[in-house]
Design a protein around this nucleic acid. Structure first.
Lengths: 146, 146
DNA sequence: TCCTTGTAGATGCATATGCATGTATATAAT
DNA sequence: ATTATATACATGCATATGCATCTACAAGGA
């Protein structure tokens, strides 16, 4: 084989399966949510973080760091979620550039409705494929990439 | 905690890290390709499969199955790649509905140019984080999800 | 032959994403 | 204060994606 030809390495096998596994699981979760008429997965993470932040709320850039989203991505995600009335954006009193994010009552309701669907899909797509020990092992190996 | 509240399970840890790992590695590879002025990763897989198929070429639906892409996704991906002159689409002689895909000389050239960049990024983002034994173990665990 | 059903692939429309840049405010240096 | 630079967030524009549907051909009856 020529030097520029693909030979399958362990790295490549890992990479390929990593993508396939992630997309397969994601597809299952998204499908489950959609089937219940619930918002997409991305909304869950945002709602959960903001809800967890409590009555203080959360700055947009903090959420950005936690979700690892690009700045403009979060900006537009929040525009959609706010449009749906699930998160409220208030001007930040101590920094005129910023927003404070707070979950609304409806936002809590929707997140709580999403959770059992999300959890069930995760259990089916992930938990059912591994023993507890394997899951811990896998989680440990995956942690290398963060 | 209320029943609808999120409690972290092993499944969830695995799922979260799976996504983070996949996006992190992908970002590295895409960045490396872009930095060299090369096409995105999705093009590589298509080019490689078509090149591998040899002079017989490959039917579009076969490629679709191998790449696990939605039908319309592949249709448009190929439109872009063909527009760039890297893959040729000829009508299929035995099935008037189909196309036969064949890589062009320029397609070979580009794929060959992509490979070392792709391989290096993979080695850096995946191989460097694991021993060979760990990579095999991880690949085995990830295979559960296919 | 005609009709029905299935499959290969393309595409219009709505929505999402990436990239670059814009606006507004903050912070620091002069 | 003035000017420069950095940060928070939004947005115009091009491109990509999802969904539904369309066209064209194939295959199997009646």
């Amino acid at each position: 084989m020529h030097r520029s030809d693909q030979e399958t390495s362990h790295s490549q096998t890992v990479w390929t399966r990593l993508v396939r596994a992630a997309t397969a699981v994601q597809a299952r979760i998204e499908t489950a949510l959609k089937a219940e008429g619930l918002p997409p997965l991305g909304w869950y993470d945002a709602l959960w973080e903001v809800e967890r932040a409590g009555p203080e709320g959360l700055r947009q850039f903090e959420l950005q760091q936690r979700l690892l989203l690009p700045q403009y991505g979060l900006s537009r995600l929040l525009a959609r979620i706010a449009e749906a009335g699930l998160i409220a954006r208030a001007p930040c009193p101590v920094d005129g550039r910023g927003h404070i994010l707070m979950i609304t009552a409806e936002g809590r309701r929707v997140r709580a409705a999403m959770w059992p669907v999300y959890a069930a899909a995760m259990a089916e797509a992930v938990g059912a494929k591994l023993t507890e020990a394997e899951a811990e092992l896998l989680a440990g190996l995956l942690a290398r990439f963060v």
